[in-house]
């Protein structure tokens, strides 16, 4: 009896500790991630936002301090910003459209078994592994009329009068990085969509086939609704990544010729890195962030709608 009492009072003392442990344990596993993300991303984010209201120009160290909305007024009057904004739109839309549909096509092809599928899958996903700077350089080459084949092919097909470098043409130059980006981004969509396709239960297709659905009908009635939530989320993530992805443009055109190919993110990088004007770079980044947030909200709303539809 005494034994029982001691042990139960001992447990009584242990009890709050136990509760505490249940609360604290997940945070033991999470704390490295939280600390790292907070210190390297969230704190700089707040600092970055504050920069937009300051003059922080390393080339002009004498005018520093809070400037209120001056940077935003400058932004409003900055023709290059508006040009970059338009370019961001076309860059993102053009890249995304082709990445998505070509990626979907690839995923559908890979979803059916055929001889050598494993090998093909490894090969077609390869562009994703090519470092962006390398694919930028490489595509810049392919577009170069002296040493690259593409202008010659275009000329041979009669699309171009004579082999020219489209990267040197302000009206067309943006399409160079877009093509490189499409090449680079197809695998991402193919991988995620393939994963989503493989999680659609087979018997749904069998049931549809027994019900007399054609291939096209089962694609529209089963595949698309099942993929829709994945599509919405991947398209959203990719849009954000593409809009923020300055490497290819920075490498292939550097924003030129005549600033005609800057998107906002490459403009941010040039402003911060070349001109060391951190204040204005942050202002540009906030503009981009606001646009992307609005876009993400829209997509998430649509996704909710789509998920309900199933």
């Amino acid at each position: 009896m005494t034994m029982a009492q001691t042990s139960s009072s001992g447990n009584g003392r242990g009890r709050p500790l136990k509760r505490f442990q249940w609360l604290i344990e997940p945070y033991l596993y999470l704390s490295p991630a939280i600390i790292l993300i907070a210190l390297v991303m969230l704190v700089p984010l707040v600092v970055g936002v504050s920069y937009a209201f300051q003059a922080i120009d390393l080339l002009d160290p004498f005018t520093t301090g809070w400037v209120g909305l001056a940077n935003f007024e400058k932004l409003w009057a900055d023709r290059l910003f508006w040009k970059a904004l338009t370019n961001t739109f076309w860059w993102t839309l053009g890249s995304l459209f082709f990445q998505f549909f070509l990626g979907l096509g690839l995923a559908l092809l890979l979803n059916k078994p055929f001889a050598g599928r494993g090998l093909v899958q490894g090969l077609v996903f390869l562009p994703w592994a090519v470092p962006a700077f390398l694919s930028g350089l490489n595509w810049a080459w392919l577009f170069n009329p002296i040493i690259g084949p593409i202008p010659h092919w275009l000329a041979a097909m009669g699309i171009m009068e004579k082999p020219q470098n489209i990267l040197a043409n302000p009206d067309l130059a943006l399409w160079g990085p877009i093509v490189a980006n499409i090449w680079f981004g197809i695998p991402f969509f193919a991988i995620t969509l393939l994963a989503a396709l493989q999680s659609i239960p087979r018997d749904l297709y069998e049931a549809a086939a027994i019900d007399g659905a054609s291939l096209w009908q089962s694609f529209i009635k089963i595949t698309v609704p099942f993929l829709a939530p994945t599509i919405a989320i991947t398209v959203m993530l990719r849009t954000i990544w593409i809009a923020n992805f300055a490497d290819l443009i920075y490498i292939m055109t550097g924003g030129g010729p005549a600033n005609s190919t800057h998107i906002i993110s490459s403009y941010i990088f040039t402003t911060a890195f070349r001109r060391l004007d951190f204040g204005y770079a942050s202002t540009l980044a906030i503009a981009l962030l606001v646009l992307l947030l609005a876009y993400a909200m829209l997509i998430l709303k649509m996704r909710k709608h789509l998920v309900k539809g199933i």
Partner: peptide
Amino acid sequence: IIIALMLITQMFPLLMIIAPIYKI
């Protein structure tokens, strides 16, 4: 909240923090 914070990090232009990170 933590998941939301992690999602946000996927959303903003990383270039936005390039200047603060440089300073830090």
